[in-house]
Design a protein around this nucleic acid. Sequence first.
DNA 1: GCGAGAATAGTACGACCGTTCGCACTTTTG
DNA 2: CAAAAGTGCGAACGGTCGTACTATTCTCGC
Lengths: 235, 235
Amino acid sequence: MTEPTRPAADVLALLGVPLEPLRESKGGRTREAILGAAVALACRTGLGGLTVGSLATEVGMSKSGMFAHFGSKEALQLAVLDAAALEFATEVVLPALSAPRGEPRVWVLVEGWLSCGLMRRPGGCVFVKSSTELDEQPGPVRDRLRNQHLELGRSIARIFAGGIREGHFRADADPERFAGDLHAVMLGFYHQHRLLGDPRAEERARAAVTALLDAARPPGEGSGVRAGAAAEAGR
Amino acid sequence: MTEPTRPAADVLALLGVPLEPLRESKGGRTREAILGAAVALACRTGLGGLTVGSLATEVGMSKSGMFAHFGSKEALQLAVLDAAALEFATEVVLPALSAPRGEPRVWVLVEGWLSCGLMRRPGGCVFVKSSTELDEQPGPVRDRLRNQHLELGRSIARIFAGGIREGHFRADADPERFAGDLHAVMLGFYHQHRLLGDPRAEERARAAVTALLDAARPPGEGSGVRAGAAAEAGR
DNA sequence: GCGAGAATAGTACGACCGTTCGCACTTTTG
DNA sequence: CAAAAGTGCGAACGGTCGTACTATTCTCGC
């Protein structure tokens, strides 16, 4: 995995990803390294289960060294959320935004999301894990996670609305509802894949999305382009 | 909340709920009381966040008193899972099983499930929380949770299959796929309701289930009975 | 009403938690 | 090149974790 070049700032801002100064000093680099390990660790244990001690041993530093970079555990959790959001935005949302508008763009998003959940690092997804952890335990971390989810929902709705303008979907279709439905499909996929270990989870998720899109299609049109080529070209 | 009478043993066994001897001695009663508090606590903190100390203060006993009833934390977690499954089975699944077969039975299940997620004790659902906690951390607790989820899926599939036999749904509809799709809708509902606090979550979940059922209906039939009366009579 | 055994309290333990502080070492800056 | 700032370590703190052992209190069949 090569060092990913940072996408254009305005696009990221559109996705609600805050971009800290990105200092290129010594400390800035190790901070980045710590964050990478922290995201991977949080994927396995959740944001609450992410302990300073385990993170320190993971990166081969002392606990106190962590506090030199992040003042508190809460600040570390916030930084982890932002780093994970940056990753998700660059690897899933941005490729979709550079695909042709309308249904192909939806499919690139779905395929990127699926492969993110499938072949990803062990432990799963920070966002899914911390969503259920924090859902009723108020505080800055919960608020940040909530805002990120809302922003993701808005992005999905925008992508779907583009499909309406292209004529791929009915004019009276509800983009927000589609965003919620798609998110539900992905949650179900995650659950079936991770906990139940069902090998048909991926195929079923695609079928569910297809059903969602079919229901949103203008009357009298068959199943639309599955956009396999577009999905491949998008990454 | 009155003491719920225990349902017929064979029905519970069908749902995969183990039924321990249910001793009526002093210790048996306090064990039941502890389990009730433990389930409520686990709903707020998850199975992993459920600590022996906090549970002890919650029920007004000492930590060592807990270990007299449950030998270890793991045994406590297993007991909590079983108690929660018993609750879910009696309050959601069983009422559905006594509703008229077919689509009305599906709707009683959905309504019970929704109200379970809505007006329930603070903190949410143990199963959702522990699903994401344990999904990749092997052990007896994870196995039990997995089996409970599989059993729930089978129950949903059976209920849907009954709708096929009644002629409410297409003969070539896939009950297992419906079970997965319904679960996904409920997960999405939970997420929208708990984390995002969206007041439209409930209405959207009903719309999603309606879409699921419409897609499964035999061709040439309009939207089926919404079964409002049946849903009310079922509880 | 008494004695056996269950039920619960008390205490102690080692491990790890998040956090702080003081001190070395290195990098950047003037 | 010296000073200032940044970077990381080691030790220690008060707490809480799960668990073990030993007492004490209570219940209940006889």
